[in-house]
Design a protein around this nucleic acid. Structure first.
Length: 177
DNA sequence: CACAATGACCAAT
DNA sequence: ATTGGTCATTGTG
């Protein structure tokens, strides 16, 4: 029952920049998207435990299409119930849900997000939950910034910068006056 | 179970 | 630049 999990690695056509050579990896269970990650071209992506899925799989094609839209600076979302987040700690789920609700092009601080998740004082634990995000891009952890600056990003800050730039938040990427 | 340790933090020195 | 505060999760005994 654990092994109707399938995954695939792929690229998406994008304008020159970090995403042009990025390698994506997605994993699906029958319940939905289990994981989505990006890595630079050269880096080996963790292979997951499931089998490889066909590149022609409808779920994958739809995902690629959405990603391509986002790489072009346009909107494109997945509903929260399209993710399979089972086996995640409860608090993480709360935070991820709140994070999912941050609109395209907007940002929120870790503290604010903690409040949205129902634990205003858990801003630090909130950072943990962000770090543990499994669905890059569609659970927009890049829209969560620190009160003093841009904050962090698991797997490389350059992704966060690039994503925020795509959404018109260059003022955060380049703190100017 | 009961701890101690660990953060993609924050606000006030 | 430093510090003390806060909190869920994870690791250790």
């Amino acid at each position: 029952m654990k092994d109707s999990v399938v995954g695939a690695s792929f690229r998406v056509l994008a304008a020159p920049g970090p995403f042009a050579t990025a390698l994506w990896r997605a994993e699906f269970s029958p319940r939905g998207l289990r994981r989505l990650s990006v890595a630079p071209k050269s880096a080996g992506i963790e292979q997951g435990n499931g089998r490889e899925m066909a590149q022609s799989d409808p779920r994958l094609k739809r995902l690629k299409k959405l990603i391509a839209r986002r790489m072009a600076g346009q909107r494109g979302d997945l509903d929260f119930d399209e993710f399979d987040l089972t086996d995640a700690p409860k608090f993480h789920l709360e935070v991820w849900r709140a994070m999912h609700a941050i609109p395209f092009g907007e940002v929120m601080t870790y503290a604010e997000l903690a409040g949205e998740a129902g634990s205003p004082l858990a801003f630090r634990a909130c950072g943990q939950a962000c770090r543990n995000n499994r669905i890059v891009l569609f659970i927009p952890c890049h829209r969560v910034v620190s009160s003093t600056g841009i904050g962090g990003f698991a797997g490389g800050l350059h992704w966060k910068r690039a994503l925020l730039t795509l959404e018109g938040q260059s003022s955060i990427v380049n703190p100017k006056s």
